[in-house]
Amino acid sequence: GPIILQTYRAIADYAKSSSTEMALATGDVVDVVEKGESGWWFCQMKTKRGWVPASYLEPLDSPDEAEDPEPNYAGEPYVTIKAYTALLEDELTLQEGENIEVIHKLLDGWWVIRKDDVTGYFPSIYLQKAGQDI
């Protein structure tokens, strides 16, 4: 059958920071082609296409719909594959190769994780399921 693309609206202006990204103006309506766990979604708008941050988009049809999966307070084991230094107070600073537990996989790509009973946000793009080869 035909591919039905989901339509989203930009809730804020976004200035792209690399050539594969697409800039957004508040109110822009885009078709989402691919949703990545990293929080980058590949979108097209008229003749433009590129990656945009998922958190800058809301569903056009059902803006109140919560799409994020439920938190898993038991935690899912992951390993950091790149170091990250927290920029905001609610983020965690971790080195590469640290074992952590993922509690909440948010669609914006910033997951709630736990390390030694401390919780905070961490970029999912720097995480990999424990026990897998890089």
Binding site: I11, A12, S18, T20, G36, S38, W51, P53, P123
Partner: peptide, 22 residues
């Protein structure tokens, strides 16, 4: 073809998204 996504983390949600009641 779809290009590779950026290798850096996306920005944190904009203020507009945080204002929404949860």
């Amino acid at each position: 073809t779809i290009k590779q996504p950026p290798s850096n983390p996306p920005p944190r949600p904009p203020v507009e998204a945080r204002k929404k009641p949860s």
